[in-house]
Structures are given as structure tokens and as C-alpha cells.
Design a protein around this nucleic acid. Structure first.
Lengths: 110, 110
DNA sequence: CAGAATCCCACGGGATACTG
DNA sequence: CAGTATCCCGTGGGATTCTG
């Protein structure tokens, strides 16, 4: 009997486990999704686009996504302040995943 | 300025939100993933394949996935008991998503 | 406008033991 | 073998307030 493919968060052999580790949490995929769809967004635009998210979760999620190299933060030193977020090249590579997920979600709705 | 695409868990207009609602939780995608890769698995095989999962989470996740119509449970009335799990047609429709996710995860590892 | 700082709690999930 | 039944806890995340 052939060996089974396993899922393990511990060792880094499972690509799905590695992927999930980066996009875990309630709000990361939603954030990436709206950035995908809308392109560059300001902080407050993000907050309106991701319905229900709080300042704390938005800020912390953005920070983690930035550290993972998926999104880019550009700060303009103006008054009032302006900060724009967008996907990096690496972040855009998630597009196929989200597209498939959206397709699948559409099926669910109908 | 054109309207922005939003993510909202509340109303069912966002396909990504609808999708995430079904596969939320720490273990559902892992379970679906190993069923994808290995085909039909028995309870204990699942438990070994999804490293770290507890009986409780395995049981409850399987139940929810079954209720969502993504997996199929077949029970054989033997001694000792045997129960086999596999993806339904609907569950297999998640394959493209997982494939893309796995591809993306591979990139992360390298 | 774009956050940071606190406080706080529900609950998702873990550990262990038990059973048809 | 394939689960249940309890007990329990950490922390992900919410609500609110404050600030450069």
C-alpha cells in the first residue's frame, strides 16, 4: 500500500500547510481580495471595503501581510496623512487562488 | 470615482466571503486536501494524515463538511467498525482552489 | 486620516478519559 | 475502530478610547 500524502504544519514539506500559515486569520484573505479587485487603496478605503473589520485587526493584518511580503505600504507625508496599500508581485501571485475561490463561491450562492 | 468591490460576511453578495464561510476553521482545508490527494480514507487514516488534529476536531470538522455537502461518509457495519470518507462531486470542485494554493505554497518553500 | 493603546471576553480548539 | 463526553484554557479578535 502506498504512502499517504499528509498535512503537517510542523515540517515544511506540505505546500498547502505552508500556504495556510501565511494567510491564516480571519481577515487576511479578505484584505488581499479587495486589494486584488480594487488595486491600490487607502487605509480608510480598506476599512470600508472589508466590512466589519476593526482598526486593530486591519492594522495588525496589514502589518503581517507586509512582513510576509504580500503587500506594499506607501506613506505620504502630507496633512492629513495618506497611506496607500497595494499588492506586491508576490501578493499578486495569490490571484489565481482567489479567482478559483471566487468561482467556487459563486457556485455556492446560486 | 467608481464603486469599490467590498468584502462582507453579512450579505451574500461576495463570492469570496461565501466561500470562506464554508471552509473556515483550522482543519477543514487540511482535511479536504488529504482527501483530495489520497482519495477515500478511513477515520484513523485521516487522523494520521492530518498531523496534529485531535479526535474532537476531526469529528466535528468532518460533520460540518458533511453538512455542507463537501464530503461523504460511508459506514460499514462490521466488527471492528469501518467508516470511510471521501469527497463528493461538490467537494471535488474545490480541487482547483487547492491546486493553486499548493502551487503558491511551493513557491514559498523554495 | 491613519493608526496605537488598553481592556476584555467568547469560543475555537486542546487534553484526557471513556465507550458502543 | 471510530468516535463521545468533559473539562479547560489561550488567544484571536472585539469594543472603546486616545493621538501624531
Amino acid at each position: 500500500m502506498k504512502d499517504k500524502i499528509i498535512f503537517s504544519i510542523e515540517n515544511d514539506l506540505c505546500p498547502v500547510a505552508s500556504a495556510l500559515k501565511v494567510i491564516e486569520g480571519k481577515w487576511k484573505l479578505p484584505i488581499i481580495w479587495v486589494l486584488c479587485q480594487n488595486g491600490t487603496l487607502r487605509y480608510n478605503e480598506l476599512k470600508k471595503s472589508v466590512v466589519g473589520i476593526t482598526n486593530m485587526m486591519l492594522t495588525s493584518s496589514l502589518k503581517e501581510l507586509e512582513e510576509s511580503g504580500l503587500i506594499k505600504r506607501v506613506q505620504f507625508n502630507e496633512i492629513p496623512p495618506r497611506v496607500e496599500y497595494s499588492l506586491t508581485k508576490a501578493g499578486e501571485k495569490l490571484l489565481p487562488v482567489l479567482d478559483e475561490l471566487a468561482k467556487w463561491g459563486e457556485e455556492l450562492i446560486k
